[in-house]
């Protein structure tokens, strides 16, 4: 980790991990966010919902929706977000 970094970017942090290792990564993210801005890029919807406070849904290079994680996952405003997070489009 770079000295004086203020932001940490994690790219698919649960890729190929088993459930216990995934839970450990979740814990680590929670710990790190006390001191860093943590941005997680993931296709794992449930991990995204668990570890984040804000969620952005990007599709084909465009920002489709951004908001509070609770809102985006419970009641998204854009039908493309809903179709993606519920597994209707890939």
């Amino acid at each position: 980790m770079q000295r004086n970094a203020f932001m940490l970017l994690m790219d698919e942090p649960r890729s190929t991990l088993d459930p216990i290792a995934t839970a450990q990564v979740d814990e680590l993210i929670d710990e790190l966010r006390q001191n860093y801005l943590v941005a997680v890029v993931t296709h794992a919807m449930h991990q995204a919902a668990r570890v984040s406070q804000k969620t952005a849904f990007l599709h084909l290079g465009n920002l489709v929706e951004y908001g509070e994680t609770g809102t985006v996952f419970a009641n998204p405003t854009d039908p493309r977000t809903e179709s993606y997070i519920t597994g209707r489009i890939g």
Partner: peptide, 12 residues
């Protein structure tokens, strides 16, 4: 782009 069908049809 939005769809009514799940990719996993067993869910539907």
């Amino acid at each position: 782009m939005s769809s009514n069908q799940h990719i996993a049809s067993v869910f539907d």
